[in-house]
Amino acid sequence: MPTQEQQNSRSQTSQKEEMILKAEDVTVYYDDFAALRGVYMDIPRNQVTALIGPSGCGKSTLLRCFNRLNDLIDGCRVEGKVIYRDKNLYSDNIDAVEVRRRIGMVFQKPNPFPKSIYENIAYGARINGYKDNMDDLVEKSLRQAAIWDEVKDKLKQNGLSLSGGQQQRLCIARAVALKPDVVLMDEPCSSLDPVSTSKVEDLIHELKEEYTIVIVTHNMQQASRVADMTAFFNAEEGESGNRFGYLVEYDRTEDIFENPQEESTKSYVGGHFG
């Protein structure tokens, strides 16, 4: 497990860009067990940052710290700081609902609301206090998510009537309709076929012009295709026999894949385990 200074010095090298999210010594407990330990990590603005690693390494857990979605899990507790625009998201005066209005999320399994396609977009906008022309927003968001042409004639249909890949792009449209700063993606392609996957990946490339994207993926090719920065997490057997995760190495994607510093990173990206 690399020391804190190592991690800090590594991230210093790439700190020319503005950092929008910073994890500072983040440790996540499920009940009494620290499932993810001591993560320091800076997420640069308007770039795609990928979190990779074997199952149980805590990459999704970390992602859910960035919009406080871990709050929903009974017995989950976060220590350390997550700094977003100079504010600690876990300090007492921060409202988790407001955090989620600025930091959107796309999930592993497409989860459109059981409402019409139009309402799927409009619902979030409305509760966020959007007052302008709703039709325009719906069209713009669906265009941004590259699904407008497929659904423009059936906006009244239930979102669940779409195919899996379309549902996932609808969920992306739903997230970008809120004009968030950051879009978190938790293995967004893991339940999609290859064609839909490549559509979503193209979309990620386009979206980073406007948004910061943090993506968790099991697929290393995907990380190398879409990400500017990549963080490799690993899991280790803890004192009670439970596995806990930690950040091994975080650097530019080319460096992680071509010139990794840590032995475990090298064997993971080389396909030797995980």
Binding site: K109, N111, P112, F113, Y123, G124, I127
Partner: peptide
């Protein structure tokens, strides 16, 4: 109801009440 539905609603910034009554 699938748990993802609830997470999805919170993720667009719904409060608990909005999640219960609207979703």
């Amino acid at each position: 109801l699938p748990p993802e539905l609830r997470s999805g609603s919170y993720a667009v910034g719904s409060t608990r009440w909005q999640t219960i009554f609207s979703i």
